[in-house]
């Protein structure tokens, strides 16, 4: 939570972003079907804030992150970063922008080259971009490692010699090397043990304050996303169904899917036995998406209009966006607080 996000300058603007993967079916009669991984998402990320993206597997959150990090080309739509349209850059300009746009991956075991020593892993971006060499390179790498809680003794080791948490620290050092403005964090703690998750989350927060970083934090664990984010987007089947500040999202959610998602989280309080909303059924087949609102097949409040018309993502005037024909209006925080016994 950096102070600068109140400035409200968007550092990243995504509009109508789509990624459709073709599904090849048949041998002679080729039919072009598409897997709509991301189907028209639009949002803005302000400088210095943490923008959380949450949703279940297959909702398109990682694909969105990969497109923003320039690792996957979009089918259509625009990504504006720092005032520039990323799809209209030439090679040289792209290289310059890449310095400011980094990514941390989910799996710390496969995202580090097993044949490279830690020094080389962290030094590589600095060398590629000609930022440092010789003695300065060594100093810079060491500083970066110290920044993420590693030290001199780790320089000459290989990734397999480290635990999951330490590897994720190496990945963070590598992402930090070029002093980026924005880091896409794609499930950075999901593969780690609980006690180590907390270490990495704390580290990310500390670094954000120190370097005024902007994060896009992609995860499926709502408590984690809430802990680290300023604003949160909820995705369902390739679309954003709700965007709000974390407090508005958790205290006054407007989309039935957000409500169900929150209600499904086991609460760390044995005295509170909640009546949870259990969604029936599972995600529809993404290659054969429901008409109208994609959530209507599982929505407890669905009406006939939901099957026909696609709801648009609309702003309530205070920056709370929801795509629903019948947005909810309630305040569950009161209910949550009532049964809260005094804790240690």
């Amino acid at each position: 939570m950096s102070e600068n996000h109140q400035d409200g300058v968007p550092i990243l603007k995504v509009s109508a972003l789509k990624k459709h993967f073709p599904i090849k079916k048949g041998f002679l009669k080729k039919k072009d079907q598409f897997f709509k991984a991301v189907d028209g998402v639009s949002f803005e990320v302000k400088a210095g804030e943490t923008f959380g993206v949450v949703g279940e597997s297959g909702c398109g959150k990682t694909t969105t992150g990969l497109m923003i990090a320039e690792l996957l080309e979009q089918t259509s739509g625009d990504i504006w970063f720092d005032g520039r349209d990323l799809s209209r850059l030439n090679e040289h300009e792209r290289r310059v922008v890449r310095k400011d746009l980094q990514i941390i991956f989910q799996d710390p075991f496969s995202s580090l080259n097993p044949r490279m020593k830690v020094f080389d892993i962290v030094a590589e971006p600095l060398i590629v971009h000609g930022m440092a060499s010789g003695k300065k390179l060594k100093e810079d790498v060491l500083n970066l490692l110290e920044e993420v809680g590693l030290g001199k003794q780790h320089l000459d080791r290989f990734p397999h010699e480290f635990s999951g948490g330490q590897r994720q620290r190496i990945g963070i050092a590598r992402a930090l090397a070029l002093k980026p403005k924005l880091i896409v964090c794609d499930e950075p703690v999901s593969a780690l043990d609980v006690s180590v998750q907390a270490q990495i989350l704390n580290l990310l927060k500390t670094l954000q304050k120190k370097y005024n970083l902007t994060y896009i934090f992609i995860a499926h664990g709502l408590p984690t996303v809430k802990h680290i984010s300023d604003r949160i987007a909820v995705m369902y089947m390739g679309e954003i169904v709700e965007i709000a500040t974390k407090d508005a999202l958790f205290d006054n959610m407007k989309h039935p899917y957000t409500e169900a998602l929150l209600s499904a989280i086991p609460v760390m309080n044995p005295h509170q036995k909640t009546d949870r909303i259990i969604l029936e059924g599972e995600l529809p087949n993404p290659a054969n998406q429901p008409s109208g609102c994609k959530f209507h097949t599982r929505c407890p409040y669905a009406q006939s209009v939901c099957k026909q018309n696609v709801p648009k993502l609309q702003n309530d005037g205070e920056g709370h966006y929801v795509a629903c024909h019948f947005p909810l209006n309630k305040n569950i925080s009161q209910a949550l607080n009532q049964e809260q016994p005094a804790r240690r």
């Binding site: 635990s163 408590p223 809430k226 989280i265």
Partner: peptide, 19 residues
Amino acid sequence: STPRLEVEQEMLEAIPGVV
């Protein structure tokens, strides 16, 4: 170490080190 939905905290009380 576990973030909670109903509690707002700046930093988590992480356990240092590893298993």
